[in-house]
Design a protein around this nucleic acid. Sequence first.
DNA 1: ACGCTGATGTCAGTCACTGTCATCACCTCG
DNA 2: CGAGGTGATGACAGTGACTGACATCAGCGT
Lengths: 200, 200
Amino acid sequence: MSRWKPDARGRLEKAALELYNHQGFDATTVAEIAARAGLTERTFYRHFADKREVLFPGGNPLAGTLADAAAAAPSSLAPLEVISHALTEAAPVFEERADLVRQRQAVIAANPELQERELAKLAALVSALAHALRERGLETTVAALAAEIGIAAFKVAYERWVNDPGRLTLAEHIRETLDTARRLTAPAEHDDLPRTGQEE
Amino acid sequence: MSRWKPDARGRLEKAALELYNHQGFDATTVAEIAARAGLTERTFYRHFADKREVLFPGGNPLAGTLADAAAAAPSSLAPLEVISHALTEAAPVFEERADLVRQRQAVIAANPELQERELAKLAALVSALAHALRERGLETTVAALAAEIGIAAFKVAYERWVNDPGRLTLAEHIRETLDTARRLTAPAEHDDLPRTGQEE
DNA sequence: ACGCTGATGTCAGTCACTGTCATCACCTCG
DNA sequence: CGAGGTGATGACAGTGACTGACATCAGCGT
């Protein structure tokens, strides 16, 4: 038999998620996580850059997915259509692991440091998307702005999906949110945005 | 004379910015900053929550500024107009301290941890703006999305202004960027977005 | 058998951050 | 004018995140 139990990284991820869930991120030490995974603290740091990183997929594969999808989209599409296409293509990654994703999100929602890291990961998506859009021939600022707006829409759609009793899929939330974005930035004449009734 | 030299907080901010600039954020210890300010490490932590926070205005006053400006805007304005109004009102805060702002931004640009914190501060602006928009009667999702898009535009405009030889003011960049955003989300028929020439 | 490799363990060290108590100029109030 | 309260600071010990350096040793190829 082999010298070590297999999938050390996976064991660490599992142990960390469980401990963060049960006793909170702050109250959990790296040594604890490592022990639960049958490893040492030093080995944890060989697999993850820091205590937060264990909650995020290494290499941020979503960035590659989005960039590839954006690059592969028909060249006739407008920038926001390209982004819509890319986001829709990436959505199943979340929907397939909905339970895990929601558990992870609960941990992140409970801790500001983890929220910071999540924002950094989303910023990396913006960079990747912007780069892909530039490759498609878009001017730098337009590409950056489109990428920002696209990920902004994704953030809103994702949050709605996470806190959703299961009514809509993530892809549907994305479509709805992008539609809202289009209405938001449309000329003010036909402003058909929904409002609550409480204007003074 | 008084027991302590005045403005301990300001001295710490100044010392930190100088040291971060000269030797880098990582290579600077909190003890060093405190010593340069004629104080102790412990006192540093009485003024700032952590080593990064010293670079960011305490209480994130910009959030209040934006929220107030959004609340004060004429009720006839469309969501994005409200945001445009609020951002334009906040712009002078940066332009008045352009040198300091750019120096600060150079330090942040050189360090991922500081970029994370900056993203968190921007996210706080999104929250504040979204809240203000909800108070104006906008539905939750619309408010959140408008706030996200507004700050996204601000990020792009701000970055252009920081790396600008002085050609345009921040307020002008904001206006331009918001215009671009409107064109981006407009129906695809009249797509007049600028492109580079390199489409394959 | 021999040595190389790669994942892990061990250990010491730095530094960010915190809790706690002491200090002491200044202020207030009697 | 003296007693006591206040608030900003210092001193100090402690925890835990993270790092560098070196040791170990099953499995692999030669």
